[in-house]
Amino acid sequence: MAYHTHQNRRLYYLDHGSGPAALLLHGICNSGRAWLPQLQALSSAGYRVIAPDFAGHGASSRLDAPYSVADLAADCVALLDHLDLPQAHIVGLSLGGMAAQQLALDAPSRVRSLTVACSFPSTASDEARQMLATWKQTLREPDGPLKRLEQSWPRNLNAAFRASPAGQALYWQWHAQAAQADGESQARICEGLADYHLADRLASIAAPAQYLAGECDEVSPPALGQWMASQVPGARFAILPGAAHVANVDSAAAFNDALLAFLRQH
């Protein structure tokens, strides 16, 4: 089955391949399908790829109340339980990176390694609060998820990828996905992000960790990723040349190389 149930929420996940498990956590307003550029690379290298749709996203249950990063992390632990997996390599981008860090702190024994890409340590700043307020307003408008995709696409993917045939095809795939998304559910995730603050807890992460940043990421600049890596004992840091915010997509080859090199060491 491609679903599990946690606290009365029916949550969808992709499960492909065999070997050590890699749990891939997507960004806000997206789905597990955002990890398709990693699916073949990881499975061919001998990893089992598990890519859930967060609550309120993709094929998972809708939300009618604020949903925190801690809630998302708890859903991930429940998925590992459902699959009888004592541990997994945890990989997260943007919102997924926030949930990955939360999971590493809340359930450290379940984390074989931690990869955080283009993410954040906190939403406590005035800038972050304003950004979330804008997103909530947009998402609750008619066709809000479509509007947000159209607004965010130029910042999220680099210009070369957006101009390529693959980029143009992906735009229409994500456009169709956004057309079916529930804006209220995604706004509830934005509400839950208001309480996210791990900046002063990162030093407690015990898992082997790497932080990846997109050289051209305007949403989560490289300096932020470097700072997070500096807080986590023993963490490594790398910049992906030319990559924007959704670096696993617009710079998939470089992302996959960095990810696989790290996973093979752990």
Rank of each mutant, 00 (worst) to 15 (best):
M1S: 04
Y3I: 00
H4E: 02
L14M: 05
L14T: 02
L14P: 01
L25W: 02
C29I: 03
C29P: 01
C29L: 07
S31I: 03
L36G: 01
L39T: 00
L42F: 07
G46D: 01
P52T: 13
F54L: 11
A55P: 02
G56A: 13
L63R: 07
L63E: 06
A73F: 05
D75N: 15
V77Q: 07
A78F: 10
V91K: 09
G96C: 13
M98Q: 12
Q102N: 06
A104M: 11
L105D: 02
A117C: 02
F120V: 06
T123H: 10
D126S: 08
E127W: 14
A128L: 10
R129W: 03
A133S: 13
A133T: 06
G144R: 14
P145W: 10
P145G: 08
R148M: 07
S152D: 08
A163P: 08
S164H: 12
Q173M: 03
H175M: 12
A176Q: 08
C190L: 12
E191A: 15
G192V: 14
D195H: 13
L198N: 08
L198H: 09
L202F: 14
A206C: 09
G214S: 09
P221G: 05
G225T: 02
S230I: 05
Q231D: 02
R236V: 06
L240F: 08
F255A: 01
D257P: 01
H266C: 15
